[in-house]
Amino acid sequence: MSAIANPIEKRNERYGKYVDSVTPKTGTLKSLWHSFWIGGLTCCIAQGIGDIYALIFPNFSEDLIVNITSMTIITLAILFTGLGFYDIIARKGGAGCFLPITGFANAISSAAMEYKSEGLILGTSVKMFTVVGPVVVNGIVWSTIAGLLNLLILGRI
């Protein structure tokens, strides 16, 4: 069997190399620049919203300000998704649109909307985390491990 498999592997490898050499690449500099400024701008908007909240509610704690800021931009991103232009921005922004927390929001809401046709219970509710599941699951698992390790190593202070 290996005698048969070998020439195929060789052929596949050769073909793979050939395909790699002819496949067009994303314009690196251009797409990096787009993701840079769109991502940077998202962060700046969040910072601005946070600063405004800090001005309006001077007696809120810093944590609370951070929380309501992220709640605000998440809501905005979901609204953008609903209105149907988040993915148009994202086509240009690439990582600048999925790495910020707005991308998380977009992933949840797009999946929720997509599976609406199967109903709110079996569609939307079941499939809401299809895209964003890896982030939530890994986040919970590894943060728990971080907490446990911290407790083990540093002890209870």
Binding site: S31, L32, W33, S35, F36, W37, I38, G39, G40, L41, T42, C43, C44, G93, G94, A95, G96, F98, L99, P100
Partner: peptide, 9 residues
């Protein structure tokens, strides 16, 4: 923020 996104890209 931009650098993080560019890195991901």
């Amino acid at each position: 923020g931009g650098l993080m996104c560019a890195l991901a890209q």
